[in-house]
Write a protein that binds this DNA or RNA. Structure first.
Lengths: 355, 355
DNA sequence: ATGAAAGCGCTAACAG
DNA sequence: CTGTTAGCGCTTTCAT
């Protein structure tokens, strides 16, 4: 009812031409004479014609819509990423339709199926697990997709699709190095889920750093924060109850770092005098005065824009020339939680972009 | 290419029936015998058939997709609202496709047109301005829509469409009363844009409170924060430069309150000893230790769920029985920024829902 | 109980 | 240059 809008048929009737002519005229197809083209376009405007993209998509096989799967939007990191995706898509005349998977593979499967049924042209996947069957199926089907932030890790699939991800090994290295340079040798780590590339690689980066610097890897200093505030909060408390507790903590995401911060303060310790703290992602709340969380992170919004650009390019030329693999270089954002007093470093950069 | 999925035609061929029969069988239409229905459904599964919703929508006029316009997702308040919308939609088998308008009406117009062309069944609009022509047009066209958080204010349109909004007058009252009870009489206000219902009504609520309590309304104590961190930051500084500066500040959104917080601290004043601070919305970062922002707010996530529920109900029964107007009751969340020492109040509620 | 036919709104061949 | 025809994948009459 509310949907009865004018169609090319009616325009055709008014212009005394056929629907096909109208269709072409509206697309400025040079096959139609400039006169009739102008005439038809005028009539279309007069009748306030709006194309039906559904019908168009049915025949042209392109809907100008991209499916996005993301763990959840209320996490600042993903909100920023999503904004990059949306803005990027918009620049190319595309829209995104996103689903929150909550890190549940069965939900992701449902979401992906639904989005495919709705005719999306491709996927940006921010919810990848290391051995994500849903994504593998998409790859097998030759469906355009790019993973962002997280990616598949198992061979051979990990090299079969495009992705844009942070350099997690380097990021972890930078964070650890920063703590190390402040003199910390006993460093607790709040890890994420190991079945995600970010969780796996960041932890791996930590271990490499320790090895390289001749520090013994103590399993009890690694506690699982599960990419989740509650879990990270409790994990931190566990860490702080250790008789030989760490002098510093590296939480491999800022969301978890903020939870760790709560735990540390709740226990009555001070940051950074009693315990130093650094996170990963450089989310906006990390920059708030009163939080002032030191962090290492990549340009999240940009990462989103790059990912969607790659996807749309492959969608539009409909040919995958070669896989696009982008690694974003992380930077150190020094604030108040590490007791930084000053030193020289190539990674150094004071305070991030303020929104 | 990647889109060639099995269609009902192929199922029909295999099942030796006509496409129409397949269509009905797949919808469990009792017109088809149980036997053939079962048989067809089995074949469909075997062939891993997935319906093409585009085609379906073209004929059935329902796409199970809702358009959402929102100022921007990186604002915690809207992220939470959006999550409610998405979750709510998902419960009914709908998806949302959202656009960030950035509070720009021309962008909103483009977005709405595009979404209509993409065949959305209705709109949830979180970007309404008081006299929003785009929305008025939607109403005139009889297009299903519900406004959320903000709404139209001018007559007669303000009563012509559904909405779910906070009780802004009450909310402002609660915030002011809280400050008042701590003894504050000179209260600075960081206002939002007056062309939004939230901005207008919250400021109005403040003024009513002052009047009721015999406090003179001093224009210089009202500074425009423009729903924007930068602007709010500068506005706060302006307020604090006053020779007879306020002893407390009410920022009518938490995002602005957090910016105000930065300004206050940057200037070297303490919270709450030098100056008290209260916000509006009760966003998640307000709950972080170190921020501990006192705030008044409604259940944002719930508001989103209610809004989408109303919309989907009107979409599905395709008849607007009566307009649905919902007002959410705000509650006070007392934290550390108002120097609260204790008193009794009917609005009182300690600490909010922790995520 | 099922088949046949028409059509949603649009585009893309092929004619003329 | 423009019209005709066919069809995207599905649903929904109307016949049989």
């Amino acid at each position: 009812m509310a949907k009865n809008r004018v169609t090319i048929k009616e325009i055709a009737k008014v212009a005394k031409v056929t629907p096909a002519t109208v269709s072409m005229a509206l697309q400025d197809n040079p096959r139609i004479s400039t006169d009739t083209r102008k005439k038809i376009q005028l009539i279309a405007k007069d009748l306030s014609y709006h194309p039906n993209y559904l019908a168009r998509a049915l025949v042209s096989k392109i809907s100008y819509t991209i499916g996005v799967t993301i763990p959840n939007i209320t996490d600042s990191f993903y909100a920023e990423l999503l904004q990059g995706l949306e803005d990027g898509a918009s620049e190319f005349g595309f829209n995104t339709i996103q689903c929150s998977t909550r890190n549940i593979l069965s939900k992701e499967k449902l979401d992906i199926d639904l989005l495919r049924s709705k005719g999306v042209d491709g996927f940006v996947i921010a919810s990848a697990e290391n051995e994500d069957l849903n994504i593998k199926r998409l790859i097998d089907d030759g469906f355009p997709l790019v993973m962002v932030n997280r990616r598949l890790t198992g061979k051979p699939y990990c090299e079969m699709a495009d992705y844009v991800v942070p350099d997690n090994l380097l990021g972890a290295h930078i964070a650890m190095e920063h703590l190390y340079r402040q003199g910390h040798r006993r460093i607790g780590v709040i890890t994420g889920l190991a079945n995600t590339s970010t969780g796996k690689e960041r932890t791996q980066g930590v271990k490499r750093f320790l090895k390289k610097n001749g520090i013994k890897i103590e399993p009890k200093l690694f506690v699982n924060g599960g990419w989740n505030k509650e879990i990270a909060y409790n994990a931190t408390k566990k860490l702080l109850k250790l008789s030989d507790k760490p002098t510093a903590i590296f939480a491999i995401s800022d969301e978890m770092a903020i939870a760790a911060r709560e735990a540390i303060l709740d226990i009555g310790l001070s940051i950074p005098s009693d315990i130093a703290l650094i996170g990963f992602d450089n989310i906006i709340p990390a920059q708030y005065k009163g939080i002032d969380l030191s962090s290492v992170g990549i340009k999240t919004y940009e990462m989103g824009k790059i990912a969607i650009k790659i996807l749309i390019e492959t969608v539009e030329r409909k040919t995958s020339p070669m896989t696009n693999k982008v690694t974003m270089k992380p930077e150190l954002y020094i604030r108040q939680t590490c007791g930084f007093q000053g030193y020289e470093t190539k990674h150094l950069q004071m305070i991030g972009n303020k929104t």
